[in-house]
Design a protein around this nucleic acid. Structure first.
Length: 564
RNA sequence: GCGCCCAUAGCUCAAUUGGAUAGAGCACCAGGCUUCGAACCUGGGGGUUCGGGGUUCGAGUCCCUGUGGGCGCGCCA
């Protein structure tokens, strides 16, 4: 249950009973003295109604029906209303098993994420889209939305000409294609230095596009190998993407001429310097120039804007999506603004289709510059994950040498991969972020290992419980219990916020706060040695905390080891 | 030239989208294991939220402006 929206509705009812309309502005309390939730909106409403805010807040309080739910509301400051939930209410909701309540308006959501270029190997630039997109997919699914994952991989374009030529002439064996990055570099080098090779490469592009059988077969082979590289990375990362989610650029090839025709029919097309462009007034600058969106090159070729328009058309018409989310880096913000606007204007996207670009910043090294190898090259994702598990392994070996070898390996995987994912997820998506091994693998602070550790402590308690513990009154009897309980009950509202905003760091902050409160509770409240009722109630809190931490980490795609 | 984004403690990040006294971790200082995992917990110092105006009962958050940084903008994706 979303307690926040529940309380908000009660306040809204009270406001309308007083003849007021407006946002109650209900939020979790900023400080413990302010109770559990605070109402901020009365002051704004009072301003509108030209009334005294404190007086008005008093009237709302009088009309507020929270019997059995909250203590008598408190009027504070210039017109805040502070709400404190009753022990009985807390007890009632702690006693029900943890479950995320489905959304009242389930949608069909298409999530476009990861989207590597198959010409090259996956590198750190694909990490954020893959991890963040996957977490949001899990959150949406848990809330009962129908989610279609779409991995819009780049499998088409002129660079495949040189790759095919190089494959046909130099290295067609799987061994040589094992290192796609090196293969690409070799092909590019030949393309740049050998005019004959470049010519054959361009011929290959034409052959490919015209559907010539041998070129298509070679291309398909290359794509298959490249996709298997991607899948290996996805499997190690533990993201949900599979071959079934691949919806490559080439899938839209046949639609591209239709897209152009539709744009022409809608009267949106303008020829400019030989290229077909769409000019929309909303992209007019102060200097009077209008930014074009080029949809067809002067040589007749199509561009990624064309493909993205075709994809929107497909998602609206064939998939009948209600909402489409794009997880790509922030540099593409203008591109998507333009594509969305053109899709609306052309009728590809009906007015009620939500199109959202959810951008993210760059991944920087400790020096604050783009994350690169020492030599200045791109960091392959497989190498990054190797290092993550190696570093985690070293820590596990040092701290838990007594555990069996095979278990330490599993722990190192969970901790290493979890640390990398959590480091990314826990920061506000929209900003650049610093990639720092020592920080993400630390057991202090807002990190995956800290949360995983909290889980193993709770599990350790349950390993010592021999019998089932009886159901008892869950009303908190200690300040630390109450702090923990209140946080537990906020899970639903946080999950819903992540779904609405596409910002998983809200969930991370929540889980870290929960784990911190648990640690405080654990310090202050003995569980196993407590008197019977205390023991049962505290075990109940432990069970609920473990379920919430595991559930939350699960939504982030992070595993929790039994011991560590 | 036009446009977008960013600037919060020494460092890395929050601040629920305009709410009450800007919070965490690291680092620094001082404490806590004969009781459930000390990979933990408790306390302390540390801030002109880049500068300057403005709107508002209330601004880190909105508007204007200056500085510094990043990025995008006709035939790559």
């Amino acid at each position: 249950m979303n307690i926040r929206t529940f309380l908000e509705q009660r306040v809204r009812n009270a406001m309308s009973a007083c003849g007021l309309a407006g946002n109650p502005g209900l939020q979790p309390a900023a400080r413990p003295e302010f109770g559990d939730y605070q109402v901020n909106g009365i002051m704004g409403v009072a301003k509108q109604a030209r009334r005294n805010p404190r007086e008005l807040a008093g009237e709302v309080i009088a009309a507020l029906d929270l019997d059995g739910i909250a203590e008598p509301p408190e009027l504070a400051g210039p017109g805040f209303i502070n709400l404190r939930l009753t022990p009985a209410f807390l007890a009632e909701h702690l006693a029900t098993p943890l479950a995320v309540t489905p959304a009242g308006n389930p949608q069909h959501v298409v999530v476009d994420y990861s989207a590597p270029n198959l010409a090259k190997e996956m590198h750190v630039g694909h990490l954020r889209s893959t991890i963040i997109g996957d977490a949001v997919v899990r959150v949406l699914s848990t809330l009962g939305h129908t989610v279609t994952r779409q991995n819009h991989v780049g499998d088409w374009g002129t660079q495949f000409g040189m790759l095919l030529t190089h494959m046909q002439e130099a290295g067609a064996s799987s061994a040589e294609l094992a290192d796609l990055e090196a293969f690409y570099v070799q092909a590019k080098q030949r393309f740049d230095s050998d005019a004959e090779f470049a010519m054959r490469s361009r011929a290959n592009v034409v052959a490919l596009q015209s559907g010539e059988v041998r070129a298509r077969a070679a291309w398909q082979r290359f794509i298959d190998i490249s996709l298997s590289h991607c899948q290996a990375v996805y499997d190690r990362l533990g993201v949900l993407l599979t071959a079934a989610d691949v919806q490559p650029e080439s899938a839209y090839n046949d639609d591209l001429p239709e897209v152009i025709r539709d744009l022409a029919t809608a009267g949106l097309l303008t020829q400019s310097d030989g290229a077909q462009c769409v000019f929309l007034d909303e992209f007019k600058g102060k200097d009077g120039n209008v930014l074009p969106l080029i949809v067809q090159k002067s040589d007749g070729g199509y561009l990624y804007a064309t493909t993205d328009l075709a994809a929107i058309r497909y998602r609206a018409r064939t998939l009948r999506a209600d909402r489409v989310l794009y997880f790509t880096d922030a540099r593409q913000a203008l591109h998507f603004r333009q594509v969305f606007a053109v899709a609306r204007a052309a009728g590809f996207a009906p007015p009620d289709l939500q199109l959202e670009h959810l951008p993210f910043g760059a991944m920087l090294g400790r020096d604050g510059k783009p994350f690169k190898t020492r030599a200045g090259g791109v960091v392959k994702l497989t190498e990054l994950l190797d290092e993550a598990t190696q570093r985690a392994r070293a820590i596990v070996n040092a701290k838990s040498a007594e555990l069996p070898e095979e278990e330490r390996a599993r722990i190192a995987h969970a901790v290493g991969i979890g640390a990398v994912k959590y480091a990314d997820l826990s920061k506000n998506r929209t900003n650049d972020y610093l990639f720092d091994w020592d920080q993400m693998l630390s057991f202090d602070g807002n990190t995956a290992p800290y949360l995983q550790y909290a889980c193993t402590r709770i599990r350790s308690i349950f390993r010592r419980v021999d019998a089932d513990f009886p159901a008892v009154d869950m009303a908190p009897a200690h300040a630390a219990e109450r702090q923990l309980a209140m946080q537990l009950l906020r899970y639903q509202e946080v999950v819903e916020t992540v779904a609405a905003e596409g910002l998983p760091h809200f969930l991370c902050v929540y889980l870290y706060d929960l784990a911190t409160r648990f640690s405080q509770f654990y310090e202050q409240c003995p569980v196993l040695n407590a008197e019977a009722d205390d023991r049962a109630r505290r075990l109940g809190l432990c069970a609920r905390t473990l379920a919430t931490l595991e559930g939350g980490l699960g939504l982030l795609g992070i595993e929790v080891p039994e011991r560590m």
